[in-house]
Every structure is written in C-alpha cells, then in structure tokens.
Nucleic acid binder design. Structure first.
Length: 676
DNA sequence: TTGCCTCGAGATCA
DNA sequence: CTCGAGGCAA
C-alpha cells in the first residue's frame, strides 16, 4: 500500500492543505502574513489544481471550499448541547460594584475578583463545533437553545479554522464567538454594490446577520466576514485550563482569532477603567463595539457561582451610553392588545439613529405620556440603547410648535367602539369589549399561533387579520375547521400557501400541555407560569376545575394570578373553546418532570416515517422517536432531519431525495433507537 | 423595532 | 420580475 500512487497524491494534498491553512491563519487570524498575495495565490492554485485532478480525495474541510458550495434548500435546526445564554447588563459603575459584591458574597471572599475584560463586539453570535479537530458544524445562537445550521456559510469565513492546529485540543470542542464585518470591509462592499447598482446595506450588523442567513454560501463567501472567539461550549475528550484567559490563549494556539484588546484585571475599579479606556478608543476601531464584557476569570469560581435562569452569575455586559437622536412626534396612535390593553404608539418623523431609521416607538401607557409631558408636534429625544427598542426619553418643550395638540386617551376602543375603562389606581386602560372586540380576537388568535404557543408557521399577523375580517374564523378553535376552499379565495393565497398553512395547522395539534396552557392567552400567564401550571397539574382537566386556593399552591402563583386563572376557566365560552380544541385533535403527552441531566438525543429533530415498517409498528417507532425528543411529522419538508423509508416507500421518499434529506432504512432506525 | 433573506403570488412579457 | 408576508437576529 505504501507504494500506492494515490497515497502519494493524498500526502501531497494534505501538505498543500496544511500550507494554505497555515498562511491563511497568518493572514486572516494573526494579521501577520509571511507570503505575498501572489505567492499565496500560487500555492492555492496548486492545491485547487491537484484537487480537481483527484476529486475523490477532496476533503470537505479543504481551504478551497471556502468559496462556498451548492445552495441549501433550507437551514436545519440545531439544538445547542450547552445553551447559549445571554448576559446580564450593568448600567453604570454602581451596577458594576454590585456585581463584584454579589460575587464576593457567594464565594465568601473579600479580595478583589480577577476579571477577564473584553470589548462587546456588535455582530452575530455563532457556535462552531469541532470533532477530532475538524469543523463539523456551525450554528447561530437562535433562542439560546435551538439555532440554525449555517456550517456551509461559516466555512467561507477565513478566520474560522476548518482544522485545528496542534494536537492538544479536546476531541469534541465547541467554540463560540461573534461574527462581524470590519467597518472598512463594510464600506468597501457598499462602495462596490453602489458601483454595480446592487443594493447597499444599512449597517454592518444587519449585513452580517443577512450574510449568515444566505442559503447560497457562494454569496456568503463574497461578504467580508470575520470573527472573534470568546468562549467555549461543549468540551469532551480533553481538558481546558483553569482560567478563562488561559482557555482563550489555548484557543488562539489552535488557530482561533482573538480580540487583541482582551485583558485580565483585578477588581471592579480596574474593570471600570478598562470600560472608560475602550470608550475612548471606540471610534478608532475598525469594528463596532457596544460595550464591554467582564467575566470572572477562574473557571472553578464560575462553577461555584453558577447561573440564574437565563444568565451566568459570573459575567456581565456593561454597555456604552445609548446614542440619542431628536425628531418630531407626528402622532400618537392607540393599539388594542390581547387582553384589551390600550397602548399608545408614537409615530415619529423618520430619523437615522445608530444605523437604522426610527419611525415608531411604543409609549407603554398614558402615565408614560404624562410623565414625559408629550404633546403631538413636539421635538422629542429618542434613544436606541444596546437593547433594540427605541424609546422616547424626553421632550424639547422650547421647540414646541404653535399647532401642537395634546395626547388624549380615546373614550372608545379604536377597533370596536366599546368603552375604554381604566380602573382607579391602574395604569393600563382597557377596551371593555372582550372577545366581541375584533382587535382582541385577532390578538388572541395571533398569540395562540405564535412560536412559543402552538407555533403555527405561516399564520402571520396579516393572515389572521384577513381570516377574522372575512369571518372565516372567530375563535382559535375555528382554525382547525378551516378548509382549502375558503382559503384559496383569499388574496395572495395560492395552492401552495394554502397547503403549507393547512399542514402547519395539522402539525400544531401535537403540542405540550405547557404550550397549550400558554396558548390560551390567560392574563398574567406567560411562558414560565404556564410551565409551572403544567408541571403541577400534569393534565388539563384538573387545571380547568382548580379553585383559586389550589391554584396558589403552584410555584409563582399568588392570589392575583390565581384569581385571573380561575376567572378565565370560569367563563363558559372559554371552556367551550377548549372543548372544541381538544375535539379538533389538539393533544399532548402527559407532562413528566424532566430530570435536568437527561439529554434527549433527538430533541429539535423532525422525522418522517414512510412505507411499511417490518420489525416495528408505526406507532411504536413514532413513540420511541418522540421519547428521544424528536418531532414525528407526516410530510417531508426541508426542515425534516431524516426520513425513515420502510418497504414500498412512495412519494415521500422521492421528495426526501429531491430535497437532499437524509434517508434511513428501518434497520438504521432500530440501531439509532438502541444505540443512541 | 428595523433590516435582512426567503418564499410564493401575481403581473408582465415572450 | 416585483411585491409583500414570514421568520430571524440584535
């Protein structure tokens, strides 16, 4: 075998790949090229040529693949093995002191804490997963639990290592960081776009997010993306150092790009000085930052500190003060929410602020309007902080125009004309129309279909609006009675859209008790309370009959919330809608308390069974897949993780092959179920 | 809340 | 080909 010529070629390919990777790393990650561009091109072309002569020896992680590959049908979902959390925010030196004090208390020490300080890059967070030192998957952060598989796109980013350097890396290693565009790269890209008549991007952050969501990675490859790494997720088959800063050093050694401004300091005062210094040099950087991140440097201390619900206790983000803008308040409109709450919304003269054009801002309630002393026609100060929501922070009364008019709460609901009531001492004014108010009906249906509720894809605001206005539906239960005939009659609803909608309505029937409770839209019952109710009552029936007293036994449910819940189930029409939903086939598995350590191997995956299974019954296969967290669906789409094809599989198999969806045999499935 | 990409519908042209 | 809706990210 040693004399097999293909081995020699393979060796040569490996050597060239190594060289290209090495010089790529020197150029893109370390910014210290040793070859001229021409010399590098020569090397690269040699690799390309050899690969094109030996297509069977081409590696998926070859640097030549950075130019992108064939377009995807759609992104698949990825479940993060270690959730990608967000960070708590500090809004000043006081918050920073509190942060250090909390840490000292929890660790029972009084010495200053050692922190790693980093600039907070204004880009898009991603996760890179390596196995045996090879990039096998890249994913967006998504909601922190589930993101999108953007491996093809990430491969095109020159500073993302395709193969790790050295040999001391863990066998499985997930590296996290921020993808962004340098300001110079962004400007150059827009200049070119302008020259060729293409559309220009509004700001580097949105351009980055858009580039990563490109199904055609060849287009992503043309965008000037780069990344800084800042933490790790999964680590298996190898150990990392005891300090965060040393982990980053290890990462750099394996080929990851690190921000050069990262520093380790002692004590919160030094953190604040770092913050001030970064604020000063912010405008000189070639990338956008919106603040600093401070992390407890000791990993064992991090572990002792642990996590709150959504954020680690050992890290905090300190954002720079928000940019302010001034514009004119053109009008205040009133929107009606799901529970009838009337919310004033400011219509503003469009103004550029931090890279986007602001023309709307919520005002929350009339107290806020009073507090600001808002008058229509006023010039107002607006902010768009690190958070995303624009906010009116004040008025400039000296610029008040003569034709200004006061903001008045309307007496009647703008949607249905019912009286607007505001109980004494309450901040929120409400439409008294209940579900006879079209706006409230629309909002409750929209809530029912929303992602965290029954997640009916394709049923957006506009469609709900149409369905209610055309009187095709009145309650959420009516959604399940919708037929093809009535839907195709709607504007912009062709056969395809109608079918997609009906399929996602059908899919939504299989849900969880917690989602179902949440979907009902009971006042004060959000995602967390719905989950607590589901865990406490295990099924719907006892909840439907629960007394105010027994409801208060549920975690985080006090007298007020209990009263709201009991009142909701006390209404005959609510009970009737629930009956109709259950009759229509909305169902859920009995609620089991999930052990926090149990990792369900297929969660987030969608599986389709087709053809005749010989060794398993269909129901058995379905139940066992679901037990592993998979969603078993009836139709193949690009979201399908894999299709199990039994005997005499038909159109679903064809569809799967068309979409390039993985197809497993029955034996594969059995192996999967038994082996994990 | 805005900006981005994708998809499907419907218009326009061949 | 253009437009608008839906979904995603911050």
């Amino acid at each position: 075998m040693a004399n097999d010529p293909s081995n020699k070629v393979a060796d040569e390919l490996a050597r060239l790949r190594g060289q290209v990777n090495h010089h790529n790393h020197l150029y893109h990650t370390l910014d210290q090229p040793e070859l001229s561009d021409a010399e590098f091109d020569l090397l690269f072309q040699r690799l390309q040529q050899l690969e094109s002569q030996n297509p069977d020896l081409v590696d998926a992680n070859s640097p030549t693949r950075r130019v992108g590959g064939a377009p995807l049908a759609a992104f698949t979902q990825v479940t993060h093995e270690v959730p990608m959390l967000s960070l708590d925010n500090a809004f000043g030196a006081d918050d920073m002191s509190d942060f250090e004090r909390r840490i000292q208390t929890r660790l029972s020490i009084t010495d200053p804490i050692t922190f790693a300080c980093e600039p907070k890059i204004d880009g898009v967070a991603i996760s890179l997963l390596y196995e045996g030192g090879r990039l096998i998957r890249a994913a967006t952060r998504g909601d922190g639990t589930t993101g999108e598989n953007i491996t093809d796109n990430a491969r095109t980013i020159a500073s993302v290592p395709l193969e790790l350097m050295g040999d001391s890396y863990p066998d499985r290693l997930e590296v996290r960081g921020e993808v962004y565009m340098s300001l110079s790269g962004f400007d150059e890209m827009n200049r070119e776009a302008e020259a060729t008549g293409d559309k220009v991007f509004a700001n580097p952050r949105n351009a980055t997010a858009g580039s990563l969501r490109q199904l055609n990675s060849r287009l992503t490859a043309k965008r000037p993306l780069t990344m800084f790494c800042y933490s790790v997720g999964v680590v298996e088959g190898g150990a990392l150092p005891e300090r965060h800063s040393d982990i980053l050093t290890s990462l750099a050694g394996w080929g990851f790009r690190m921000n050069p401004l990262i520093e380790v300091v002692k004590g919160v005062d030094a953190c604040n000085r770092y913050f001030t210094r970064l604020q000063e040099i912010r405008s000189t950087l070639d990338y956008e930052i919106d603040g600093c991140v401070f992390k407890v440097d000791s990993i064992s201390e991090q572990e002792t500190l642990g996590f709150l619900t959504r954020t680690p206790r050992w890290a905090i983000a300190h954002k720079f003060p928000a940019e302010e803008g001034v514009t004119r308040l053109l009008d205040v409109e009133f929107q009606v929410g799901r529970t009838g709450a009337i919310t004033p919304v400011a219509r503003l003269e469009p103004v550029k602020l931090a890279g986007v054009t602001i023309s709307n801002a919520t005002l929350h309630n009339m107290d806020e309007v009073q507090r600001l002393g808002l008058v229509i026609g006023d010039m107002v100060k607006i902010q768009r902080a690190g958070d995303v929501i624009p906010k009116i922070v004040g008025v400039l009364p000296e610029l008040r125009a003569d034709d200004s008019r006061k903001v008045l709460l309307p007496g009647a609901c703008p949607a249905c004309g019912s009286d607007i009531v505001q109980p004494e001492g309450e901040v929120i004014a409400r439409c008294s129309g209940g579900l006879s108010c079209g706006a409230q009906r629309k909002e409750s249906i929209r809530h029912f279909a929303s992602r965290l509720a029954l997640d009916i894809g394709g049923l957006g605001d506009k469609l709900v609006e149409q369905l209610v206005d055309e009187q095709l539906i009145e309650t959420t239960a009516d959604l399940f009675q919708l037929g093809e005939e009535s839907l195709v009659a709607l504007p912009r609803m062709g056969a395809k859209s109608v079918n997609n909608l009906l399929v996602s309505i059908e899919d939504s029937k299989k849900t969880t008790l917690a989602r179902f409770i949440y979907s009902l839209g009971i006042s004060e019952v959000g995602e967390a309370t719905a989950r607590n109710l589901a865990l406490h009552f295990h099924d719907l029936q006892p909840l439907r009959e629960a007394s105010v007293e027994s409801l208060q036994e549920v975690d985080d449910v006090g007298p007020i919330v209990a009263e709201k819940i009991a009142a909701f189930f006390g209404q005959k029409n609510n009970q009737a809608v629930i009956d109709q939903l259950v009759d229509a086939g909305v169902c859920w598995e009995p609620e089991v308390v999930e052990a926090p350590t149990s990792r369900r191997g297929l969660s987030g995956e969608t599986v389709v069974l087709t053809g005749t299974l010989l060794k398993l019954t269909r129901n058995d296969a379905k139940a066992r897949l679901q037990a592993l967290g998979a969603k078993v669906s009836g139709s193949v789409s690009s979201k399908t993780s894999f299709v199990v094809a039994g005997d005499a599989a038909g159109s679903k198999l064809t569809k799967a092959q068309e979409l390039g969806v993985l197809v497993l045999t029955e034996q594969d499935l059995i192996d999967l179920l038994e082996g994990g």
